[in-house]
Design a binder for these strands. Structure first.
Lengths: 213, 213, 213, 213
DNA sequence: CATGAATGAGGTTTCATTCAT
DNA sequence: GATGAATGAAACCTCATTCAT
């Protein structure tokens, strides 16, 4: 659960000194995807020390030159990877927009967020650490807006207006607990969700189990 | 409040060739303190890019050679800085050992932890990110043991035994929410504690405000 | 007005693997012209750092592949640009071949050379610097021959034979003074010509103002 | 003859992003000198293509790291080399400040400038070309001021004030003619000076041979 | 012991050039 | 032909670490 998001038709995010080529041909799109996935895998399986542009290009089966065709520098690549993850979460969350309002929506939001982050827990955690090294965020809006919108429908806009720290706190609770679970090797999303819900309902001062299944 | 856990895929990072002086818990040496504080300040005010051994030594008014007298490598320095912070928290927490057992202890624990982390929020956050880059942890046990002991006295050993994820979850809730607050520029510890307690009491399934002042 | 000379320590720079189309004097091809003009503009307005083959092709509205259809390598492109400029000057100088011999011819030669170089002074200066990086020259002979022929008619072949350094010196005086003027932002060709003539007549030991209008 | 100069006690020129160490110990000074001389030699004997920081460090018998201890980037190194040359010329010109005023001073100025530039003609020429690639000048003052002062004493301040282009023109004549001579392999400074003087006296409208020896 | 100059592996990045489409 | 994605040698530069003084 991070607070940004790229539009599905992911285009280059500003950040670029020399505006690199956008992938115009299908081959180029494949290269970009391969590079992003290679970056994710290296971070996940080999950690920070191996997270070099040369290693990424090599694992992607691309040349280092290709990498720099599409990303003006390493930070932009990391940023793009973060946005790819955010965007995947965003896609899943969008399905909630059709659902009826109410507290049940929050329960679904939690499940999606937890499942998302538990899919590749090491990646999520290392991307967070890597993000702290990046120049301060500029984008971060689409996912945040989506989350706000869902929270509004789950809890009512009035409450959001009254308690401006509420979203930040919920994100922090979920993010922190899932990260810790991932770090400790947990993979039972259901058990984890139960515990997270306890904290969340407590925070919201909602009676326990507000929407029994 | 920091967690200790070795990820399943642990790797060795050869961080010990020449065991210098007293790498861990170096005794009240003015140079060592100056170096640690310089490291803290650089991380806080200039960020990761400036966090280099040469810059740290310079700001500490020491030579790079001296730095390496006291720390065998950069990771050990960062580790020592983390331990300095942990140990400062530990000192404060020790005062709780005299207090009577019971849920009120948890309330005091929360306050101390929040106030501690809110003192230098940027440092706390960046140290976390830096820690992720370190070879997997071995230390941090004293603080962890202390926390467990306090939790045991606050909640009862039986409950800790029954719910092994409880400490991890509480740490995560507190840590996550304080980090987020620090990042958003909050500095009102009282207001923050109120919100954290809501989540914590919820998680623990304790009635609201269990121990009125 | 450019000089041709291979430094004693000449070296080969392997600039010819696949002899493309018509590298030298490419015929009235719109793409070639566009490329050359794009190269000139980039050098003029953005300087050396931006003078890359990809940037040139892009500004010319051509693909990098097309660029390499017409020029075997970057040096050949730069060379062609130099020759384009030389040849423009040559065209103007050819009009002098009909004029009567005598010192008046030199005055006209000076005017044409000065006006030519002052048209795009930055380009002239940067092309000189770029030329120094090129493999030693082979071309530039047509312009050189033309200049020698005009000088011969202006000063008499006998004098040229007696003073072999004379052309080199005159070129250097004119080139150096115009370059400096361009660098300093001068654009008054007339005032500049007056000063150049003073040096030239002095060099030639000709009475001042040898051929009043 | 270039228009700048470093003070004899050469200190780092601004230009530096990260202010590199100034040489404090004699060993360091030797390294800096060795690097500068290595740069000069490579430019002179192997040309632009070989003028790389790695090659320079290697020829200097230093490591690449040492080079970057003293020069924040390659441009700063080139700049320092230019200033070293300017500074050497400046030292020689300073001896003229004791001489009596008058046109004879100009004759001596010319001789010194010509001899200086003919000492390492290839270096002078290639440094000029390299300078054109540098970010626009910031220093350039000390040598220029010295030259102005000598010119003032040679020609009278009144004339300098009346003809502001005069210094620029004289520099250009001398620089241009010596460069051309160097390029053509001339090494007879006396013969060259005779020709340069003809142009200079003509430019100045001074009777030929104003100060016979 | 302290100093700080020196080291150099290795990371990031550029850009001329190639070649499959 | 034209295109532009891909290539990769090689340049620049960093910074943890060593060691002569």
């Amino acid at each position: 659960m991070r607070q940004t998001k790229t539009p599905p038709t992911a285009k280059k995010t500003a950040a670029s000194r020399s505006p690199r080529k956008l992938p115009l041909q299908p081959r180029a799109n494949a290269t970009v995807s391969a590079i992003l996935e290679a970056a994710a895998q290296i971070l996940e399986t080999e950690g920070f020390k191996a997270y070099t542009t040369n290693a990424i290009a090599e694992r992607a089966g691309a040349s280092i030159g290709s990498l720099y065709q599409y990303f003006p520098n390493k930070a932009a690549l990391t940023q793009a990877l973060i946005e790819r993850e955010d965007s995947a979460l965003g896609e899943r969350l969008k399905t909630l927009l059709d659902r009826p309002s109410g507290i049940g929506l929050l329960r679904e939001l939690l499940r999606i967020a937890v499942e998302h982050q538990l899919q590749r827990p090491a990646l999520a955690r290392l991307l967070d650490a890597e993000e702290a090294r990046l120049p301060p965020r500029q984008s971060a809006q689409p996912l945040h807006a989506l989350l706000m919108s869902i929270l509004g429908r789950a809890l009512g806009e009035a409450r959001l207006a009254r308690e401006p720290r509420l979203p930040q706190d919920l994100f922090a609770i979920v993010h922190g607990m899932v990260d810790a679970a991932g770090q400790h090797g947990e993979d039972d999303a259901d058990a984890l969700i139960v515990r997270i819900e306890r904290a969340v309902w407590g925070y919201l001062r909602v009676d326990d189990d507000p929407a029994p299944r």
